[in-house]
Design a protein around this nucleic acid. Structure first.
Lengths: 249, 249
DNA sequence: CGTATCGTTGAAGTTAGTCAATTCGAGTGG
DNA sequence: CCACTCGAATTGACTAACTTCAACGATACG
């Protein structure tokens, strides 16, 4: 083994974003990558009046399946998981939210899913009613939201393909490749080290696998010298090979 | 076996809908259950000018992954399947479209999935550009479309739960229960006999199973006297038990 | 009546799940 | 600083579920 110089490359999740609360929407660090990027300065000032930055502790709940959805959220830092709970306690994570991602787009009266913070995180909260009327006055934001929803739909469909038709190794690889791309968007540049703030159980519940299978598969990939497992993350050692094995990516 | 009096209860898929072409949107048989139901008579007349009823033969293609999406469609009779093809020929069906369902909601420039007719079917076609401008002038239709998209999202998430966390029997049962509800909406009343115009291969590709597993599971359910397999359909013999076994349904 | 396709059934093989033991790492208190 | 504890991650042995491969039966169609 003895690759001690490789170890220690901790995936420190700056998880981008940060404070900036005081400065309002104009100075928002996720605006360029979020739906808010569609807005003019004047509109941002108006949006700001109905926005409130909230902090969430790790595991703190954002939404509970079936409860009334008073707010919608725009993630500004950290990571959230969106999931469904089955009566017997099993869980299916349908997605992880990164900075710039919207939650509550499907503006039904009630949340159809649970969501909570994976790590300490922040999000911008909007009262649904206020946001909704703002939306009516701002058709280009509506468009942008619709595009975001369409993209979410495409992502969900790819997730379906993964769960329905791929085996464990490809699920894991696809997950890593996709997550890398999403981090790249958030951080402005692609990194070979992917922060994985979520647990193996989370990954398993996202990919329809058990923790044991996730662990075995990751360690097999590490033995094959495709990845390196670092604290709180994964370093991709051979991105070309990984993307090839993952399918289209 | 000798339940010959039960056999012969063919699931004749009137598959509801039918002609009505000549009479226009006002007389459209799927309007009450479709997004068009949100429109006023005057608006329907306008919509009608950009609508064209098209007929599709079984297996005729509606959309091909990656191609430009010139039209969007509203299913008026029959059934379509929406799917993704993998490079090695495997297929994941992400959904079946019934009368009243919209296709092409995610108004990207290109189709992200394939779609074709399962049986001879008809659909109302709208040129995307024209429909899009109509949408801008008709915010309540936009709302309704957005709600439909949100519902699609919820359905996709439930599908994810199914593929990620349920075994074959529950996938099949859930599929039957859900399809029954959808037919009920289309036909105006719930029936114990569910038309299944699609093949076992289609069901398998929808549920992430092989044809063999679909066949074995269905026949096991028939042996357990929960269902009866009839030509082109399934009759549910014990709906209460089926819904219990399927989970929340 | 022959052929093609679809569906069913059986047997063998694989993958991932289950159960259980062990290790690792972070945090705690002596 | 070290022992202890707790949860997360890893690893192994075994098992269940589903797939694969193969053969066969039914049905529709020319």
């Amino acid at each position: 083994m003895g690759a001690s110089e490789l170890i220690g490359s901790r995936a420190e999740p700056s998880l981008c974003g940060g404070s900036g609360q005081e400065e309002g929407c104009l100075a928002c660090e996720v605006r360029p990558i979020s739906v808010c990027g569609a807005l003019q300065p004047a509109e941002l000032l108006e949006l700001q009046t109905m926005a409130e930055r909230r902090t969430f502790a790790a595991r703190e709940s954002v939404a509970v399946q079936g409860e009334r959805s008073e707010f919608i959220y725009n993630v500004t830092s950290g990571m959230f998981r969106v999931y469904s709970l089955l009566p017997d306690g099993r869980r299916q994570i349908v997605g992880f939210l990164l900075p710039g991602d919207f939650f509550g787009l499907a503006l039904g009266e009630r949340f159809t899913f649970c969501a909570d913070a994976v790590v300490p995180s922040t999000a911008c909260c909007f009262r649904r009613a206020a946001f909704s009327t703002f939306l009516d006055r701002t058709p280009h934001l509506m468009r942008r939201l619709h595009e975001a929803a369409a993209h979410e739909m495409t992502v969900a469909h790819q997730h379906l393909v993964l769960l329905g038709r791929e085996r464990a190794e490809r699920r894991i690889l696809h997950f890593l490749v996709t997550l890398r791309q999403r981090w790249a968007r958030v951080c402005g540049k692609a990194s070979v080290t992917i922060p994985l703030p979520m647990s193996r159980a989370d990954i398993g519940d996202y990919l329809g696998l058990t923790i044991e299978t996730v662990s075995r598969t990751l360690n097999q990939l590490a033995r094959d010298r495709l990845i390196l497992i670092v604290p709180n993350g994964i370093r991709l050692l051979d991105i070309a090979a990984i993307e090839r094995l993952a399918g289209e990516g």
